[in-house]
Design a protein around this nucleic acid. Structure first.
Lengths: 150, 150
DNA sequence: TTCACTGCAAAAGATTTGCACCCTC
DNA sequence: GAGGGTGCAAATCTTTTGCAGTGAA
């Protein structure tokens, strides 16, 4: 993965730097998605001199190098996840506690292709986010109903 | 639809105003999605005294009244669409020309429920955006390949 | 008459950019 | 040594908010 990035960097006539190495390392360690701000704060813990702009610029680069994927839960800020050991997947998002799960359903994937095909589209990517209540929050909800406060 | 809004307004102890009437009217006329800025500029054409904040506040209200749905294509700004004659649907988006189509596939909808259920989630909503090339852009693409410029 | 509503301008919050200096290659 | 990279602060861009005046019920 690091190699992939170095190859990309070289192919574009760009340069490898201490900052890029550090950001990449931390980004790859993080499973699931991470916001630029979270990443920035993790990076700062290791090296407080790195600037916020560098993190943003690096994320853009990672996307171009096809190492990161940008996801958007529509809550006002972006998130990124690396593709290492992470094939494409969709998200189950709890609207109460914010927990997310990565899921894939091959049947759905296939139907998406068919659906697009029926309209003459050729698909390059998709994003599917399913919002609802996670098991824990459903349980809590049920408990509240049984015994209302007050 | 206008009635639905008026009912909602009344039920919340809010008031109907000239601005709200105008924004609602223009919003309902627009098929497909519209960004706050677009809506604002359409409204200004009819009444140049309406403020941008009023449009934003109205969109929030329309969402609460369950008349509008917010969609997010992850390009940095929000979009809204009304539900009048618009059942739930997903989107096919051309990454080249930006054209969008509304689509629904009952089979996919059903599988989404099943998928969520397998993980103990109860769904309240979802967003599915399929990105790719529309028929026209595919055709153009193919033509370019056959006869490269230069 | 009472509050909700409005426009404006300022504020907020995420992301980008201009610039002078730094450091790979 | 050349040219890309960096940090910082300022700039952008979308959306929200505070406020004093306005208007619906």
């Amino acid at each position: 993965m690091k190699l992939t990035f170095e190859k990309y960097i070289a192919s574009q006539g760009l340069k490898m730097t201490r900052q890029r190495g550090l950001i990449l390392e931390i980004f790859l360690k993080k499973e699931g998605h991470i916001s630029p701000e979270e990443l920035y704060s993790l990076v700062r813990k290791k090296d407080a001199t790195v600037g916020r702009a560098t993190v943003y610029r690096m994320l853009k680069l990672l996307k171009e190098a096809d190492i990161a994927r940008e996801v958007d839960f529509g809550d006002g800020f972006s998130r990124y996840e690396h593709k290492y050991g992470h094939a494409h997947h969709d998200h189950l998002i709890c609207t109460k506690c914010g927990k997310t799960m990565e899921v894939v359903d091959e049947e759905i994937e296939a139907l998406q292709e068919k659906l697009a095909g029926r309209h003459g589209f050729s698909l390059t990517s998709h994003e599917m986010d399913l919002f609802g209540l996670c098991p824990e929050c459903r349980e809590k909800e049920a408990r509240v109903k049984r015994q209302p406060p007050g």
